[in-house]
Design a protein around this nucleic acid. Sequence first.
DNA 1: TCCCAATATGTTTAGTTAAGCATAACGGGG
DNA 2: CCCCGTTATGCTTAACTAAACATATTGGGA
Lengths: 121, 121
Amino acid sequence: MTQFSNTDGVCLFKPGYKIWLEKDDGVQGDGFFQLLEQIKKNGTIAAAAESMGMSYRAAWGKIKAAEKQWCMPLVTTKVGGDTGGGARLTPQASDLLQRFFRFRQDVDSEIAKIFKRNFID
Amino acid sequence: MTQFSNTDGVCLFKPGYKIWLEKDDGVQGDGFFQLLEQIKKNGTIAAAAESMGMSYRAAWGKIKAAEKQWCMPLVTTKVGGDTGGGARLTPQASDLLQRFFRFRQDVDSEIAKIFKRNFID
DNA sequence: TCCCAATATGTTTAGTTAAGCATAACGGGG
DNA sequence: CCCCGTTATGCTTAACTAAACATATTGGGA
């Protein structure tokens, strides 16, 4: 990419991107699907939220918003009991999660190729 | 995509994306390049800004920020005179603009394909 | 029956980004 | 020499999103 480098060879740029799934005005992207993955792994919303450095309140809000926007249950929860409660993904959420990660992976490699083709002579 | 449709056939989602060019913390995306295109077409920052529904102040700020981030002149301007002044793109900006639009176009068609492959059975 | 960990929600505060306001300078033409 | 449209830039204000705070509830186990 000598085309867009400085005389000192510094000040170059690189491609950036963000992808998501949307419906109407609501969108869910990378952060949301990572949250779902952590719920699947940890078994509780609280632990998933903490592992991502966000509050339980924020995590819960994102889940509820997504369920409303997409009109489908994503997480089933249990309140009380010996462990205090817990959460697990619905089959739909699990499927969606898997597809999104593949989608993201494919897009990632493809964008790198396209950028190279257009900006690096 | 019957996989993720409601019983009424509503509540589906679609892919969304955003791409940009970045360096350090600064990024410039679609809106910025559209602004450059309008400057090229109109010959003034003021007219370009108006055509995009933004203030001259905002347009000018974006241009200055981009020039600083990328360490390259993007727009040459003239103050005063019979027309009041004017602006035109540098060759570098013109080249960059062209490449970005091609980049965006390629990404657009590719993402559609990838989405279809991953979400529509 | 009380405790504990987790779910469930409303409300408030903060912080960051975008928009708007105000003002100076320039330079060709009438 | 004044007018007009445009560049140039500081400062203020508004809007929108994200984080934080506060509380209630659940249900198994000690």
